[in-house]
């Protein structure tokens, strides 16, 4: 049953990845990365159970922390950088 959940999450991760590649806007990509990060947290947490290693949860927690900080960082520095107009208007 863990397996079923893991497969669902993997599929969701793959779909998010596709969204990150095709864009079309920058924000779509950031959104996809954020979602991918959340999925990874879940993935690692379930994997910890599947393999009987609850210490994986530490990794998951770090992931959640870092994911948030990375997204904020991306947005912060994006404000400095002028957006590429072509990519945006689409």
């Amino acid at each position: 049953m863990f397996l079923a959940a893991i497969i669902a999450i993997l599929v969701a991760m793959a779909l998010a990845l596709v969204r990150a590649f095709i864009g079309p806007t920058l924000y779509d990509r950031i959104l996809a990365v954020n979602m991918f990060g959340t999925k990874t947290v879940l993935f690692i947490a379930i994997l910890g159970y599947l393999m009987g290693r609850p210490d994986f949860l530490d990794v998951a927690l770090v992931y959640a922390l870092i994911n948030f900080i990375a997204i904020i960082g991306v947005l912060r520095f994006f404000e400095y950088k002028k957006a590429d107009p072509e990519e945006e208007v689409k």
Partner: peptide, 16 residues
């Protein structure tokens, strides 16, 4: 777990 997995999957469909 299964419902959660399904919801994650739906969300991923949604972003497409």
């Amino acid at each position: 777990l299964i419902i959660g997995g399904f919801i994650c999957f739906s969300g991923a469909i949604g972003i497409h």
